[in-house]
């Protein structure tokens, strides 16, 4: 009985909860994005569907469900089908190791408290980096299989961009890993509970991580692969209906993933803000707040900055971010030693 409980029922329940929450938060994100940017741009945003337009995301989802599924005549059909799947699955898989809180008993339902991550791998961070790299195949194949020029250019841009920016992103995380001395997501948070949040000693790493995270998720000002004004809609120009929705979902899921990593690695995970522990706010709320802050940065950037050009983006990635990240690692390593 206990065996089934611990090994099958609890993980299944946790997976269901996490996936539902992630997909719902994508809906919330689309709404929040429209509203936040709307307020920055002195307008109201969606107002028609439901009170303050709250039901807009649901209307959007229904619309996408009912859209015609168009496949270009010259498209490579199998790859064309495969690409959205390849984009969405890795994005969701990465949530496997994200610890949303310390431990929980599900309000006393369980006898033994269980971790608030689906699985607490001891190489959690490595797992995330590995899995998230697969997502690029979705974009690349989607752009290529459409057999159309704008998606092809978009896919090429994004392949170059994501490959280049994964390097500084990984390098930026190495600093905190050196300080925490572990690759486990949970371990990193626990290491921060003893000292200060890594955002303070690793401030440059945090900045580089933020910039690279924006580039990795193809968001403004690094949204070249889908630059509307240049490439119409980039790699997903030819996609419609649910396939398009999958790419859309993957983009937002990826945003949530990188925010979760930032929260765990730099912002102390579920730990309360120092000095505010007496409020007894549940760990998961802290986690959500920190993630929300990071996600807000995404929207803020989008409302403020123009877009980089392709060659300029590459130049910044290779000539600026990577050297700075390397220096950061050396300095951290010296201090840790």
């Amino acid at each position: 009985m206990d065996f089934t409980m611990i090994n099958i029922v609890i993980p299944t329940v946790k997976i269901l909860i996490v996936f539902t929450v992630v997909l719902l938060s994508v809906l919330v994100m689309t709404y929040a994005e429209r509203k936040v940017i709307a307020f920055m741009q002195v307008r109201l945003g969606p107002m028609r569907v439901g009170p303050w337009g709250l039901l807009q995301p649901i209307a959007d989802a229904l619309k996408l469900f009912s859209k015609e599924d168009i496949i270009p005549t010259m498209a490579d059909k199998w790859v064309y089908y495969l690409a959205p799947t390849l984009a969405i699955v890795p994005a969701l898989l990465t949530f496997l190791v994200v610890p949303f809180g310390d431990q929980t008993t599900f309000f006393g339902l369980l006898k033994h408290p269980t971790s608030m991550a689906i699985s607490d791998l001891n190489i959690g961070l490595l797992y995330i980096l590995a899995i998230s790299s697969v997502g690029i195949y979705g974009i690349l194949l989607g752009g290529w299989s459409s057999n159309s020029k704008y998606p092809l250019l978009g896919a090429l841009r994004s392949a170059a961009q994501i490959v280049s920016y994964e390097v500084p992103l990984t390098l930026a995380i190495i600093g905190p890993i050196l300080m925490a001395n572990t690759l486990s997501m949970k371990g990193i948070v626990e290491a921060q509970s003893k000292g200060m949040w890594f955002v303070i000693p690793q401030f440059f790493a945090f900045l580089i991580y933020t910039a690279c995270a924006v580039a990795e998720t193809n968001r403004a000002p690094y949204d070249l692969p889908e630059a509307e004004q240049e490439l119409v809609a980039g790699f997903h120009t030819e996609y419609s209906g649910m396939k398009f929705a999958f790419f859309y979902l993957a983009e937002y899921a990826n945003m949530i993933v990188v925010s979760a990593i930032a929260t765990v690695v730099f912002l102390g995970g579920w730990l309360p803000v120092p000095g505010l522990a007496f409020l007894h706010i549940p760990a998961i709320i802290w986690f959500a707040l920190k993630m929300g802050f990071f996600l807000f940065i995404f929207l803020w950037l989008r409302a403020t900055y123009p877009r980089y050009r392709y060659d300029q983006l590459m130049a910044i990635g290779w000539k600026f971010f990577i050297p700075v990240a390397l220096i950061n690692i050396f300095v951290t390593a010296l201090l840790v030693l």
Partner: peptide
Amino acid sequence: HALDIGAMTVFLYAFR
């Protein structure tokens, strides 16, 4: 012009 280069907010400000 700003929207083409990716600066979305200026677009709405100018339209106001």
